[in-house]
């Protein structure tokens, strides 16, 4: 019988983290190139906080990606980057469950629950 070991989980987690970072940074880079091409000579001002622009909300992002807007593509990469460690936690939960380590499956699910609470906490602007 194949027994799943900690080292197997470690290998999978390492792969998830590496792939997530490379993929998301690649997307950010692509979006950045388009953004600079289209807006490179615009004048910026980040002195004051300007609220939430349309291209970072979900509908806006999807629309933006379809219309090839650089900032929407960057934001898509950033969301993937934020998701990477969260996906890592989800993989750990599965790994601990397969190992039949129920104490740690519970601990891992609790961490996911806290992140979910943070996401849905109603602190969006």
């Amino acid at each position: 019988m194949n027994k799943l070991k900690d080292t197997d989980i470690q290998a999978v987690i390492g792969w998830v983290l590496r792939t997530g970072v490379m993929l998301s940074v690649g997307i950010v880079f692509l979006g950045g190139a388009i953004y600079l091409y289209r807006h490179g000579h615009d004048v910026t001002d980040y002195r004051t906080f300007k609220g939430i622009p349309a291209y970072v909300q979900l509908n806006g992002i999807i629309n933006g990606i379809l219309t090839f807007r650089g900032r929407s593509i960057i934001q898509c990469g950033i969301i993937l980057l934020i998701a990477t460690p969260i996906i890592r936690v989800a993989f750990s939960a599965v790994g601990f469950a397969l190992e039949k380590d129920y104490l740690y499956t519970g601990i891992t699910l609790l961490v996911l629950l806290i992140i979910l609470a943070s996401m849905l906490g109603g602190h969006a602007g």
Binding site: I52, R71, S72, I78
Partner: peptide, 9 residues
């Protein structure tokens, strides 16, 4: 992210 503090540019 939801507050709009993460600016892509």
């Amino acid at each position: 992210l939801q507050r709009g503090y993460i600016d892509p540019g």
